[in-house]
Design a protein around this nucleic acid. Structure first.
Lengths: 244, 244
DNA sequence: ATAATCTATTAAGCTCATCTAACAACGTTA
DNA sequence: TAACGTTGTTAGATGAGCTTAATAGATTAT
């Protein structure tokens, strides 16, 4: 009696999820289909099925159709629920492309804690029910806010921030305005493409505190982010908008 | 010249991140410290350091202090930025406990796509800059909304939803009100603890369409969620609030 | 019924990340 | 300088998950 039942691994969860979906759409799951769906070879699937059968998660007789036990179905559904939750968050809330939303969700579904599931669900409940958080009131603003998405039409014709921006576009404090020793809080990374990525990758994300350590020759600054020093060109620093 | 430089693995990213943090707080990273920080044995660290050195990501002479190369530092910082982004989202936005926010972020940081990073950053920029999305206007409401967090004081004394709720608490349509053949959209899972988890795990998350297939004896219903059939007790079904 | 074809299983071997346990280098103290 | 304790390295083993290639069972066509 060897109890190998420590924890179910991401790969095994994926197998269960795949079987669940296959049974749902084609009534039966065969080794070949599972292999194709997961992008692995059939030779990998057989031993995995044995294992799942030994764990009591699938019903599996050699060379027969594969089906989930109630326990396996529970795991599959739970995994799929996490997947859907994450996929929707990335796609519907953050506007990430379907493809990336799906693949991000696919990898992260195995790691999201129960508490995370619960709170993410609450988030959707709020979006759905609070009039101030509802689709038009929050998601549309998020997706169309000209402060964050340059070129978008004004989300709200009485938004003071947007008005301030269009009247005096220069009224903003950026990282390049700080003197050595001064610090501020990042409000926005006002750049796109490579520059944006580079700045974000250095930890310059909103609500982070950043301090200018000293100015370097050749138009660079030495900064302190998350307790670590890095250098930035002054050019790059102008794209880091600070909170007032 | 064997090019083993396919992709950097999660474990290697973790090593780089750990070294980065150690160098930041103690100036030096030693094998022992890295092992302790990652919760592995020193015997696992040495070969990993060899590998990272071969990839040009760390500077490493046997038995000497370990340091990141500029390339390694870039990877470490990028990983850490993802970590912070996710951690903050879970903790600050979703109110997940520090502990879970950290561990969720720690596992997911390796899988979040560039697009996900970008959009999550945009989300924070919006929260920070849009007056309607700002801390008081959005996060506080999210965290204190009595619609979603029972027992919280009213977030806003003229919220029509909350008013409706307190005047006529029975005015709501739940899954148990549907007849076989009818369907609806989940707005909220109005339950806590085990019941909530069970319902969420079955895919009953907000914005999901659910159809009642038929009533079963013994007070159960057969439902269709995400193209799959499941059963629920009528008791459980009453906790699934549907959108009007 | 038999051959051809498809599908599933098995065995051997690979990579990754880890462990344990023996061993080597170094620094400190006696 | 000799001995000891700390730290780092190495070798060998493990386990998960995968591949490939050979083999075995089923199904279909002739």
């Amino acid at each position: 009696m060897k109890s190998k039942n420590l924890q179910i691994s991401p790969a095994m969860e994926d197998y269960l999820e795949t079987i669940y979906l296959l049974v749902g759409e084609r009534k039966v799951a065969r080794v070949k289909d599972i292999a194709a769906a997961r992008g692995v070879k059939p030779g990998s699937v057989s031993p995995a099925m044995k294992k799942l059968a030994a764990m009591g998660l699938i019903r599996y007789e050699q060379r027969e159709f594969i089906d989930l036990t109630p326990e396996g179905e529970e795991v599959a559904r739970r995994t799929l629920a996490r997947h859907e939750l994450l996929r929707r968050f990335f796609h519907d809330v953050l506007n990430v492309s379907q493809k990336n939303a799906r693949s991000d969700a696919c990898a992260m579904e195995h790691y999201l804690s129960d508490e995370g599931v619960d709170r993410l669900t609450k988030f959707f409940e709020f979006i759905q029910r609070c009039p101030r958080g509802s689709k038009t009131e929050f998601l549309d603003r998020l997706h169309h806010c000209p402060l964050v998405n340059p070129g978008q039409p004004d989300c709200d014709h009485d938004c003071p921030e947007v008005a301030a921006m269009s009247r005096t576009p220069a009224v903003r404090r950026s990282l390049s305005d700080l003197q050595p020793g001064e610090s501020g809080t990042v409000a926005q990374v006002d750049a796109a493409g490579q520059v944006r990525r580079r700045l974000i990758d250095r930890g310059l994300i909103p609500q982070t505190t950043v301090e200018v350590v000293r100015n370097l020759p050749r138009g660079s600054v030495r900064i302190l982010v998350n307790g670590q020093e890095t250098s930035l060109t002054t050019q790059e620093a102008t794209h880091v908008v600070l909170a007032p």
